[in-house]
């Protein structure tokens, strides 16, 4: 008798919890999905300022979007690529022109770098260096001096590793995308 009471109580609580959560989720889930979508969208259009519409390219192994402008002609690609930073993963949205020879802009989506130091990769002075950067043959990191070539990026003082990680991730991402292009998977 007592055993049934024990079991019944907890089971009942479980059922009520499951039920009520399910109901809340029904309300929240679409909104959450919407939020996530909006965020991706925002990032895509941040790296392609003239972008108005995008399509996801499937079966590439990572996220690649083809971006179109107002006139519905293609302006290039956006890809999301992740790699190791100083303290954890860095996830970057990279915007590229159609021919993959020029970076339009980058946007850091996720990172867990040292606050105030590694996190400077989020800030304009560093990030803006990637605008109109030529990633061929590959991006180079320079320290202490101003970049003199179109494929050079100046490292953040005191956060060499974070700066270098971003460069490495972008290089790797662009390389992978080029491979895909050669394979013709971007159509």
């Amino acid at each position: 008798m007592k055993v049934t009471h024990i079991i019944a109580t907890l089971t009942l609580i479980g059922i009520i919890a499951g039920g009520s959560l399910s109901l809340v989720n029904n309300w929240a889930a679409p909104k959450i999905a919407l939020n996530q979508k909006a965020e991706t969208e925002r990032a895509i259009f941040l790296v392609h300022l003239d972008g108005k519409r995008y399509e996801e390219i499937k079966n590439t192994g990572f996220e690649v979007y083809k971006v179109f402008n107002q006139a519905d002609s293609s302006v290039g690609y956006s890809l999301v690529y992740a790699g190791n930073g100083f303290q954890g993963k860095i996830k970057i949205m990279i915007g590229l022109t159609e021919d993959l020879n020029k970076i339009t802009s980058i946007e850091i989506l996720e990172q867990s770098e040292t606050p105030g130091l590694g996190t400077k990769i989020l800030e304009a002075p560093y990030k803006n260096q990637y605008k109109e950067l030529t990633p061929t043959p590959s991006i180079k990191l320079v320290k202490g001096v101003e970049p003199s070539n179109p494929n050079e990026v100046k490292a953040i003082t005191g956060a060499t590793i974070s700066s270098r990680s971003v460069v490495a991730i972008v290089n790797e991402g662009v390389k992978r995308l080029k491979e895909l292009q050669i394979k013709g998977a971007l159509k």
């Binding site: 919890a17 009520s20 809340v24 959450i32």
Partner: peptide, 16 residues
């Protein structure tokens, strides 16, 4: 379990 339920609700609401 009761607490966890409320926490999940908070979590969902915040995410939404």
């Amino acid at each position: 379990v009761i607490i966890a339920t409320f926490v999940t609700i908070v979590d969902l609401v915040m995410k939404a």
